[in-house]
Write a protein that binds this DNA or RNA. Structure first.
Length: 256
DNA sequence: ATGGCTCTCGCGGAGAGA
């Protein structure tokens, strides 16, 4: 089973690009973030032609998450309880074979001085609380977390410390989530690698290696035990056949 | 120094992203 997470930065603008990636990688379960599309406008037919069905929690203009599958999946949850005012940012499905799969689009925060920053921290507290309420054994929590866990995960290294995405408070929230029994699947396999999942569109950041690793596949022990490989698919941060990429690369893992 | 792009909404330019 190949599972993936990808912030696609606008679903309708990315459809042809997403098709190229689905055909190249043939994932079974994909968590998308930043649909920027209302639930009712989701192009189900486009994905049906490729063999996929989608569970969608969208909204107009911003945010929005979906779970795309070509295996059996049942919807379990849309929205983080208590945080509806902060956008469509969470969806959970039960995947055939007993895998609970959740994808999230965590708030950005903008800057440590901005009003969004304390709200980002509170949103994480809500996620932590919500996450502890399931009794499932094999669970994946994936998405765009908008937090750089360690200096190794930032092109700025320790120079980034204290800035947005790199603060002690954000890292405490991320650690608290991990302490519920989650493992970062990529970091588990590659403890020393510096690999990024996001690069700014501006200033040639991709080619200058100015990136951040903020997109994660987190798994419980049962998911970790099943993991064979994890790939941050940076080829799909590049233009493909003249089509513009998202500013995030897909991240996928193969589970047995 | 802020911002260099790209998206949405909607038809011009503003807001958001990280």
């Amino acid at each position: 089973m190949r599972i993936a997470t990808w912030n696609i930065n606008g679903l309708r603008a990315r459809l042809d690009y997403i098709k190229l990636w689905l055909e190249a990688r043939q994932p079974n379960v994909v968590g998308f973030q930043e649909l920027k599309t209302p639930t009712d406008n989701f192009p189900h037919e486009f994905f049906a032609d490729l063999g996929y069905t989608a569970l969608v929690h969208g909204q107009k203009s911003w945010n929005g998450v979906a779970i795309l599958t070509n295996v059996d999946a049942e919807h379990r949850q849309s929205g983080l309880p208590g945080e509806d005012d902060w956008g469509a940012r969470l969806i959970t499905a039960e995947i055939e074979g007993g895998l609970e799969f959740t994808t999230v689009y965590c708030p950005n925060g903008k800057s440590v001085e901005h009003d969004d920053y304390p709200n980002k921290l509170r949103w994480y507290d809500s996620l932590h609380s919500h996450w502890q309420q399931s009794g499932h054994d094999k669970r994946i929590l994936c998405g765009d977390f908008n937090i750089v866990p360690t200096p190794l995960d930032s092109w700025l290294g320790t120079e980034g410390d204290g800035g947005i995405f790199h603060t002690v408070e954000e890292r405490q929230r991320f650690t608290a989530l991990m302490d519920t029994g989650l493992t970062d699947l990529y970091r588990h396999l590659y403890p020393e690698e510096q690999a990024f999942s996001w690069w700014d569109y501006r200033g040639g950041a991709f080619h200058r290696k100015h990136g951040l690793r903020i997109d994660f596949l987190l798994g419980t022990d049962a998911a970790v035990a099943a993991t064979q490989e994890v790939v941050i698919d940076r080829d799909f941060r590049k233009k493909q056949e003249g089509l513009t990429a998202s500013d995030h690369a897909p991240v996928y893992a193969d589970l047995n």
